[in-house]
Amino acid sequence: MNPETEKTLTFFGKMTANLTHEVKNVLAIIQESAGLMEDITAICPLTEKKYQEKFNRSMATIKQQLHRGIDLTTQFNRFAHTPDRASAELNLVDTVGQFCLLTERFARLKHIGLTAGEPPANERIRLTTNPVQFYMALFFSLESCLTALPADTEIRITPQKKGGKSPAIEYACTGDHLPPAEEFFQQLQAADAWSELREMIGQLQGEVECDTNDLRFWLIF
């Protein structure tokens, strides 16, 4: 990555991290205000039961959405810090979980499911790499899959150790409406994002391995 690009990324990272920090402050105030309303009605419930029930349901929705907002901003804040270092040790389980949370909407818009898979026996898999480029490789892989898959299918991204030692990320596509493997891989490789992935994985000194029988591929590092 050239120094100008690095500077730009660092700038965007700082602005985004700052903003997510502010959003977390906003969410904190909403959370405490909603919590206070809940505390007060617990001490002194509304006189009509049906209104108290409506109040409780509404409060439950606020709390649920607050948790969603807090989770998203927390993960996005972490993501905004990725350009801080040119090389860092990543916990791939956390990184993939975070990536799926932040990109799930891209899949949802195409009616495709996206989940982070668990490595066997909660294995801890770590990789020292350029965090921004690693995220880009994950994203180009996802984008390629979204181009090649129809609606009502699912993508599962799982960190694992390929051959028992090399850190790897598996992309496995499942569902009732999957195209034949040959067609899937043809479309995958025709996607613009796939060429970007090839270039990025080269820069990261990794490789892509495909299982043409099972609609799976791996990014191996």
């Binding site: 402050n25 904190a28 105030i29 405490e32 205000s33 919590g35 206070l36 505390d39 007060i40 001490i43």
Partner: peptide, 15 residues
């Protein structure tokens, strides 16, 4: 320094 946060949380802790 977030005044509204402090006010709301104070009330909750007082309760």
């Amino acid at each position: 320094d977030e005044e509204q946060f402090v006010e709301q949380l104070s009330e909750r802790l007082k309760i």
